[in-house]
Amino acid sequence: MDWQSWLIGTVSRALAFGTPLLWGTLGEIYTERAGVVNLGVEGMMILGAFSAFAVAQTTGHPGLGVLIAAVVGGAAAVLHAFLTVTLRANQYVSGLALSLFGLGLAGLLGRGWEGIPLRQPLPNVTIPGLSRIPVLGPMLFQGQSVLTYAGLFLAVVLWVLLYRTRWGISVRSVGESPSTADALGVNVFLVRYLCVGFGGLLAGVAGGFLSVAYRPAWTEGMTAGMGWIVIALTIFAAWDPLQAVWGAFLFGGLYHLSFRLQEFVAPELLKLMPYAFAILVLALTGLGKARRRWGAPGALGLPYTRGER
């Protein structure tokens, strides 16, 4: 095959593969910016994927499916917020539980739906004009999902919100120093609930994208560990929505390559690639100097109690 069509195919699939990663990562960035770690992304994604498929299949409206997926993901995240923000449970344990719970519940409910193709998938779009640019056109503007472009737009909006608005200052301060925010009249609990819930919303959309757009069918465990890649990407992006964009698409490319190269390299090895890369990224960002520059939110993972100094 000639290199040009190979490149076009790879980049174009990297965008598609990267889309759920981008949505998930944007959500986790907001969650963690408010000081809460949510390891339940995998669970929220799979719940989103299942509910999106079920709703789209029964109603015939894939858009409605994605919407419901967002609500389900958000609801699961609010449960996490209740446990960790209100009851001050350990965030890591609660998040892991949420992941396992989500995988189990989706597997159970999805038994009768396994392997049925979706009757009406979310249509892909081709942007008129732009798609006719040579090479770049088919690479970026042909046959992509609306959610891919929406994710890109969302990344920009979330960046502006985080760094250029009053809200952004509140969110970031709550994650860095909740006692300071509290002393200045910011409602720490409300901000944390909103950010965690919003993160779940986006994770739900990410899952919905998988089952109604990317591969319009329901398979048990179809998120295939993407939720964990999202956690690594959040760190990789240094909690910055714009950096999440290229991080997500880079990992999307790796995912795609792990399928593409199967004729040449052992598939098991290739499937390891994104995860091996994630470990590498975490190791690099954890190293002394990089860690400081990268700068995780100061109060990340710590429950907040008023009156403790």
């Binding site: 860095e176 120093s177 300071t180 100061g298």
Partner: peptide
């Protein structure tokens, strides 16, 4: 003990 967000 100052109530400041140090990275900001």
């Amino acid at each position: 003990h100052f109530k400041l967000v140090f990275p900001h």
